[in-house]
Computed example of a mutant assay.
Amino acid sequence: MKQKNIMTASFEKSLNLSDDNFIKYMIEDTKERKIFNGKSKIGVTLISIFLIGILYVLAIFSTKGIETPFKDSPVPQPTINFLPIWLFGILLIVWFAFWGYSSSKSYLNEKMFANFFNAHNFLIWIVIEANLLFLTFFLKSLTIIGIIILFGYTILISKKQSLEKQLFNIKSETNKVDNTMHKIIHYMLKYGWLIILLWIVWKFIFPNTDGARTDMMGFIGIVAMWIAIDIGFIVLEAYLFLPYLLYGYYRYKYPEEYRDWEGKTQIEWYGEKYFNKHIKGTEKEEKIND
């Protein structure tokens, strides 16, 4: 028997995803955010241009670090540039290709997922560049990357298995890793604001603690931040982004089934512009009996 995976579920099985609490949270959250619901196109454009500029600066910074050593740096001068400017250009083209494809294929009720998909790809681009930049300057810390990869593999495989069980109603022993991460995410979503508040209070009381350090403690702090960012991204990817995008994928794969399930007309589901261009006058158009 061919092994089932998370991309091959039937419409009926895909409905099991609608019971996932994290997916429900993401749907409600993205509905309210103008960056995803399409109500702030100018703002999204300006943010995108600004972030692309930042990513370009990172590539320049990495190149400069090879050509000119930084004064008082706690690490040896790097010899291999893992983030050349040409790589930035390739990543930019890839992002635009995904953006163009998803924008042209999405309809009204899929726009929110498509917008999140593009933002998600932007986040991946940022993480890739950040890691390549760190790798350029901290090449001798390669063992850290191994730890991150191992941790990430464990988390992602655990969540993939959890989604397969949810989609196909597979009964099995409790996944301890998955349950533990669910609890952590729930606490992060519930008490994350408290951490931010404590940080603000700390900066108010000790305003002079933000100076950059170039000694060994500064080195350790940067490496620790690198690990924390990567692990945080892996957890968010596995428990928030992946399930949400998977649900969007099935809504795109079974549009008519989900439309009927939600009780919407084709114009309400696809939007008038998409309906007139792709549905009206074709065999996909729903015939209404008089």
Rank of each mutant, 00 (worst) to 15 (best):
K2G: 06
Q3M: 14
K13R: 11
K13M: 08
S14Y: 01
L17Q: 03
S18T: 03
F22T: 08
I23F: 00
T30S: 05
F36K: 06
K39E: 10
K41R: 13
G43I: 11
L46S: 09
L46I: 13
F50C: 11
L55A: 09
Y56S: 15
V57N: 09
A59D: 06
A59G: 08
S62A: 15
T63V: 12
G89C: 07
L91A: 08
F96R: 09
F98T: 01
W99G: 09
Y101N: 10
N109W: 01
K111C: 04
N118C: 10
L123P: 05
I124A: 07
I124Q: 10
W125H: 15
I128F: 02
L132Q: 02
F134H: 07
F134D: 09
L135K: 13
T136M: 05
F137V: 01
L142K: 10
I147Q: 03
I147S: 04
I149Q: 00
G152C: 00
Y153V: 12
I157M: 07
Q161T: 14
Q161H: 13
S162A: 15
S162V: 04
Q166H: 08
I170G: 06
K171W: 12
E173C: 06
T174Y: 15
N175V: 04
H182Y: 12
H186V: 10
H186A: 13
L189Q: 05
W193V: 13
W199M: 09
V201A: 10
F206Y: 15
T209D: 11
A212Y: 13
D215W: 05
V223G: 12
M225P: 03
M225V: 12
I229Q: 12
G232Y: 10
F241W: 03
L242V: 08
P243Y: 01
P243M: 04
P243V: 02
G248Y: 00
Y249C: 01
Y252C: 05
K253M: 02
K253N: 01
Y254D: 00
E257N: 02
D260I: 00
D260W: 03
G263A: 04
G263P: 06
K264D: 01
Q266Y: 12
Y270P: 04
G271A: 14
G271Y: 11
F275Y: 13
K277R: 12
I279T: 15
I279P: 12
K280P: 04
G281R: 05
G281H: 07
E283W: 07
K284V: 06
K284Y: 11
E286D: 08
K287H: 08
I288W: 11
